[in-house]
Amino acid sequence: MTMEVAFFVSGSVAVIATILAITRLVAVHALLYLIVSLLAVAVVFYTMGAPLVAALEVIIYAGAIVVLFLFVVMMMNLGVRTQEIESKWLAGRAWIGPGILSALLLVEVIYLIVRAPVYATMSSISTPKQIGLALYGPYLLGVELASMLLLAALVGVCHLGRKRSEARQ
């Protein structure tokens, strides 16, 4: 019972924090709400019996990825003028189209999920050992592909960063 309560509380926190994150005018405020949302989702993972993934969510998403965003915000040094532009962009009418489209999709997804028979998630916890065995057993090719993807991203980012500094000299 306690796990279900934890699931619903943290799920609600995640949804509310996400709504606040996509509506903030100041980029840093949006990022702070994104961190809250990610931490709440980490608790959700824990209640679903995935402690390793919960830890990775905190370390990689809330730790590494959001810090990257924060560095970029600091480097760009956005001022008050950006806030004015943002508030102009976010004025009333702009909400209607995207809101209706996403709400339609969401209603459809929830309808399909609710119509299906009820399954409970297993109460067992998958240990890091199981995940590691799966990663380096049947999913070995996927791990190699992910490493290639990360290497390609690294090379691409190095290229983008170097081109700019050379063009400026």
């Binding site: 796990m3 279900e4 399954y119 297993m122 109460s123």
Partner: peptide, 10 residues
Amino acid sequence: MTAIPMADGL
């Protein structure tokens, strides 16, 4: 430890 319904997670 009680189980969370899968539908809720989805």
